[in-house]
Design a protein around this nucleic acid. Structure first.
Length: 485
RNA sequence: GCUCCCAUCGACUAGUGGUUAGGUCACCACUCUUUCAAGGUGGUAGCACGGGUUCGAACCCCGUUGGGAGUACCA
């Protein structure tokens, strides 16, 4: 039975890179008919952010990622919050100390800094020097026991052999060999009694029967440490898959420094969850390469870890925007209006009729990439025209235009309310243009200006239908008065 | 510095020894047209470099260069 976990640290809101990691875990385990677990890695109390955990679940849910077990969900191998598992880590570290694969160390932060300084000066790689620092080996059994009994501050470190090598296996990268000589004696238990990520991670993955560890590439360098830890416990390690990083335009790890990188920022910007998740999925994985649009279910059906790319992928907002537009045009309008209503409120258009919002979205969705463009792009459909494009006026408003608009307003007014349909409106305008012996465009531009104030928008006749006869006539005459008066 | 990872158009990628190196975004042109989009058609643009292996390398091996990540009592 496949079991995977998404194990974020509550040090901030869900990041776009973390979302992709969660997504790949989800796609993989759903494909395998396995279990998706949420584990909260909150062993660093100093970086804890209130509300982060809720954000993880909420944002994952927003794009369709669901958990079967975990913090806030429940399950049989909990608790799923590491801060609630300290006893478990205590018990396990004792096993390691007894076996001699972990040991006590009493060095202070200053002593450690000094050690690194010396090593740096000597031009050697910084690494805990077991033979010269204050630990179980240099101090001796007696002294160690005395210090512990005295309650001296201490850490517990992993005993890494000085010789030999450690082999690692990764589902996307294959095998690697690391020389043990260069692997650090990682701290397993901090002086505050909490475990480090490394210990908690291994203990939990084992106890929670995780079969596949799918995580970001930034963890690759610590993989040998983790393998050594599994060996120290005498446990069989799970399979590993390290995902390529998501990069910014500078080809650096995509991080908070790059602006809005939290998933909630994308929600705020009006991205559709279907588009975001589709786009994110294609950053490092490509199921068929013959198309770009995949539903979550299709991705689940097609997902294979072995098809995940090895190299980092730049986050290209342009393509995301395009994809958002694709979904904007494909998704049921009712579904879009759910998201649009609060945006209209926010733009100051209160109490907009839902059915009316639906017709507006139908009208303009071809021309925008974001739902949140609607309030501005079609402001004239929700309220009066507040400003008119002067340049457009100068270009399209000729001497005879006023006369023509007046005549057109009269003719449009002549239509019966039931006749106020795109085709009829078009008929009136085209036939008038024909009478005048000019192209319809010559009338349409001044019309667009008078009715919308803008030079761009949806088809004029359709727009007029949505606007309604009364508003159309009024606006035409108002603009005429404004121009002539 | 050291360790590890990576390397196809500007970007995301397909390609697993024989292809006119394909698709998508972006860009350009044309088309449609009442504007702007969308759509359609076409186009510019790429195998980092050097050695091997082979009848034949984008694909396999080695090296170089370049990029990235890690190097904490953070995850």
């Amino acid at each position: 039975m496949t079991r995977v976990r998404f194990a974020p640290s509550p040090t901030g809101f869900l990041h776009i890179g973390a979302l992709r990691t969660a997504l790949y875990n989800f796609l993989f385990t759903r494909h395998m008919k396995g279990t998706m677990i949420l584990r909260i890695e909150d062993t660093d109390r100093t970086r804890f952010v209130e509300g982060a955990e809720e954000d993880f679940i909420k944002m994952c849910g927003w794009v369709g990622i669901e958990f079967d077990e975990g913090s806030g969900i429940g399950g049989e191998v909990g608790p799923y919050r590491q801060s609630e598992r300290t006893d478990i880590y205590r018990q396990h570290i004792e096993m390691l100390v007894e076996r001699g694969t972990a040991y006590y160390a009493f060095d202070t932060a200053e002593e450690l800094d000094a050690m690194r300084g010396r090593q740096q000066q000597a031009g050697i790689a910084p690494k805990y020097d077991r033979s010269s620092m204050r630990n179980q080996f240099t101090l001796g059994e007696e002294e160690t026991k005395r210090l512990l009994a005295e309650g001296a501050e201490h850490t517990i470190r992993l005993f890494v052999p000085l010789t030999g090598e450690t082999r690692t296996r990764d589902l996307v990268r294959g095998e690697s060999v690391f020389s043990n000589r260069l692997i650090d004696d990682q701290i397993l238990i901090k002086s505050d009694g909490f475990p480090t990520y490394h210990l908690a991670n291994i203990v939990d993955d084992h106890l929670m029967n995780i079969t596949h560890v799918i995580r970001g590439e930034e963890w690759l360098p610590s993989l040998p440490k983790h393998i050594i830890l599994y060996q120290a416990f005498g446990w069989e390690p799970p399979e590993f898959a390290h995902l390529p990083l998501i990069l910014n335009k500078e080809r650096k790890k995509f991080s908070k420094r790059d602006g809005d990188t939290s998933v909630k920022d994308f929600v705020a910007k009006g991205y559709l969850p279907e588009a975001l998740v589709n786009f994110i999925a294609l950053l490092g994985w490509n199921p068929t390469a013959d198309r770009e649009i995949y539903s979550l279910q299709e991705m689940i059906d097609l997902f294979e870890l072995t098809k995940v790319n090895k190299s980092g992928a730049i986050f290209d907002v342009e393509k995301l925007n395009w994809m958002n537009g694709m979904y904007l045009r494909q998704l049921p309008v009712e579904r879009l209006v759910d998201d649009l209503m609060p945006m209209l409120e926010e733009a100051g258009f209160n109490d907009v009729d839902r059915a009316y919002a639906v017709t507006v979205v139908e009208l303009v969705k071809e021309r925008i990439n974001f739902l949140h463009d609607v309030p501005e792009f079609a402001d004239y459909l929700f309220g009066p025209v507040t400003s008119f494009d002067e340049e457009y006026h100068a270009k399209q408003w000729k001497e005879e235009t006023g006369e023509q608009m007046k005549a057109l307003a009269d003719r449009l007014e002549g239509l019966a309310p039931v006749e106020w349909k795109t085709e009829m409106i078009e008929g009136v305008i085209r036939s008038y243009a024909e009478e005048l012996g000019m192209s319809a465009g010559k009338l349409i531009h001044p019309l667009r200006l008078s009715l919308t104030g803008k030079r761009v928008g949806a088809g004029m006749f359709e727009t007029m239908e949505v606007l309604g006869q009364e508003r159309t006539i009024t606006r035409l005459r108002d603009y005429l008065a404004k121009v002539e008066g």
